[in-house]
């Protein structure tokens, strides 16, 4: 009994305490889900050919993650532990279907661009990982912050990789030519000087190499992140 009374008496934690702020800032760099935890690599590989796709994918993931973490956190004391993974899966799957149906109904153009990849959010290990590691044992508000942090940590890497790949692979940003026109016979800008897009950038392996370069840069800037062997 005494412990619960002590808990009640403890001063209320401010909404954005230092601890809560860290929930958002940590996943952006020092504990980034992609570059440090190396989760969610599959989608980083699949939809980073163009910035626009990566952007809409990120928005969808942020939505699924925030509401998923919130729902799991609200239900955390009710979910039977033996079926908790299945329950989490049902929650992600339902949210993804809601996102997919809404995109199809209200922004059909975006839905066409993302095509099958929205469905693949279900398989994004970051989401299940946060449900299991954080939302199952934390209150709703910190869970939302944790979701926002991790989703944005995922999103900015995704957009960055897409930017590198679209610029070098297609010579475009958000579908707009930046080096000039490269249509055969009517080259202009850099293409007229003999510049050629690097088609290798468009192929999936280059996503891994770009992510690898980001990891390298990040670890050489912060030696604490380097694992000791």
């Amino acid at each position: 009994m005494s412990t619960t009374e002590e808990k009640l008496k403890a001063p209320k934690e401010p909404l954005f305490s230092k601890k809560n702020k860290r929930l958002i800032t940590d996943p952006l760099s020092d504990n980034n889900p992609i570059t440090i935890q190396v989760l969610g690599i599959c989608s980083a590989l699949a939809i980073t050919v163009q910035v626009e796709q990566a952007f809409w994918m990120s928005i969808s993931v942020i939505f699924v993650m925030v509401f998923g973490n919130l729902i799991v956190s609200l239900l955390r004391n009710l979910i039977p532990s033996r079926v908790r993974i299945i329950v989490q899966l049902v929650i992600v799957a339902s949210l993804v279907i809601i996102v997919n149906e809404s995109l199809q109904a209200f922004v059909p153009d975006v839905s066409e661009k993302l095509s099958v990849f929205v469905g693949l959010i279900i398989t994004n290990c970051i989401i299940m990982g946060r449900f299991e590691a954080f939302a199952m044992s934390n209150k709703p508000f910190p869970s939302i912050l944790d979701a926002v942090g991790n989703a944005i940590g995922y999103a900015w890497i995704l957009v960055l990789v897409a930017l590198v790949r679209e610029v070098l692979g297609s010579g475009k940003i958000w579908g707009a030519n930046i080096f000039g026109n490269n249509l055969p016979g009517e080259e202009s800008g850099l293409y007229a000087l003999g510049y050629v897009n690097n088609n290798l950038m468009i192929l999936p392996p280059m996503a891994l190499i770009v992510v690898g370069v980001i990891i390298w840069v990040q670890r050489s800037m912060n030696k604490e992140l380097v694992e000791e062997n």
């Binding site: 039977p80 299945i86 329950v87 049902v90 339902s94 809601i98």
Partner: peptide
């Protein structure tokens, strides 16, 4: 465990199919 699963599935089913 069974009761929770059944209720969850019914709730989710109703929400998704009506959507």
């Amino acid at each position: 465990t069974f009761a929770f699963s059944i209720i969850l599935v019914i709730v989710v089913g109703v929400i998704l199919s009506s959507l």
